[in-house]
Structure formats: structure tokens, C-alpha cells
Amino acid sequence: MSVLREFKEFAVKGNVVDLAIGIIIGAAFGKIVTSFVNDILMPPIGKLLGGFDFSNLFINLSDKSVTTLAEAKAAGIATINYGLFLNTLIDFTIVAAAVFILVRQINRLKKEPVAEAAAPTTKECPYCLNTIPLNSTRCGHCTSELK
């Protein structure tokens, strides 16, 4: 019975809930980035490079001739899909940059301002070496007159 209680306490702790929310938001963000790369970023790049589709770049590993990746998949032909890999690599780069910027901003907000050193309020008596207030004209310990 205590194991269930311990698990319940662990599961409802703020850090675990925050982690779960972060994973869900991260997965949704990954889908947005994938759509951005596949649907917005890569088509203009492909058009600039002569109208080619990066997602259709592949190496045919069989002796059958196919012109598109969809044909190869329909025929059950083994392929190396380096165009899809390039899209995934660009996805990763964008997500990594976004996470880096986010973490950098969070760390910047977490930094505590460095407190400036407070101006001294005491000094040492040159005669008896006891600590006395900074504006003293006479030492309270040895009664020496200070300059």
C-alpha cells in the first residue's frame, strides 16, 4: 500500500506534471516545425533549385526502374530516402535553435542581479586599530583625535 502512496506523491509533484506538459508542447511544436519545413520552407528552395522536391530524393536499391518515391513504396522497392533525411535534419536544426534560444532567455531571466559592494561605513583607528564609524573625529576606544 505504501508503494502506491509513494507513486501517487511522485506523480502529482510539480516537476513531473511540468515535464509531462513540456513533452506534450514539445511534440506539438515538433509537428509545427515539420509542417513549416515541408510545406513552407522546402518548396521555395526546391523551386529555386530548378523545381525539385527534396522529399522525393532517394536512391533505388533494386534493379527496377521507378521515378518517384511513392512508386518505389507502392512496388515495395528498398530505397535510401536521403531527401526525407534532409527534411528531418532541417527540422531538427530549427527545433534545436528554438530550444537554445528559449533556454538562453530563461537563464537570462533567472540570473540574479549582482549586488554592488556596499560603501564602507566603518574605518580603523590608526592609533588603537579598533573599528570606529567612518565619520568619527575622535576614537571612542582610545579617545585619540582623528584627522
Rank of each mutant, 00 (worst) to 15 (best):
I21M: 09
M1Q: 05
I24H: 00
D39P: 00
C125G: 07
D63V: 02
I40P: 02
S55H: 03
V95G: 01
E145P: 00
K147G: 07
L61A: 14
M42C: 09
P133Y: 05
F54K: 01
E112R: 12
V17R: 07
S2C: 00
P44W: 09
K64F: 14
K111G: 03
D63H: 11
D39L: 08
C139Y: 04
I24L: 04
Y82I: 11
R5L: 01
L134T: 13
E124N: 11
G30T: 04
L146Y: 00
D53K: 13
I90S: 10
D39H: 02
V66P: 05
V114M: 04
L102R: 08
E71M: 07
V16D: 00
R104H: 15
N60K: 06
T88I: 10
V114K: 12
S65I: 12
A119F: 08
E6G: 02
Q105W: 14
L86C: 12
F29K: 01
S35P: 04
I59K: 07
S62Q: 13
I32N: 08
I106W: 06
A28Q: 02
I40G: 06
I132Y: 09
A97M: 15
K123V: 13
L57D: 04
N60S: 12
R108C: 04
K8S: 02
A97E: 08
A72K: 00
I21A: 08
F52V: 11
F36P: 03
I101G: 10
L61C: 15
N87C: 14
F54M: 15
L41M: 14
G76D: 03
A97V: 15
Q105A: 14
L84P: 03
N81M: 05
F10M: 09
A70S: 13
C125W: 00
F7L: 06
F92M: 11
N15Q: 12
V99C: 11
I45S: 05
K73I: 00
F85I: 07
N135M: 09
E116D: 14
F10S: 01
D18G: 10
I59G: 05
E6R: 13
F54L: 13
G22K: 02
E9M: 06
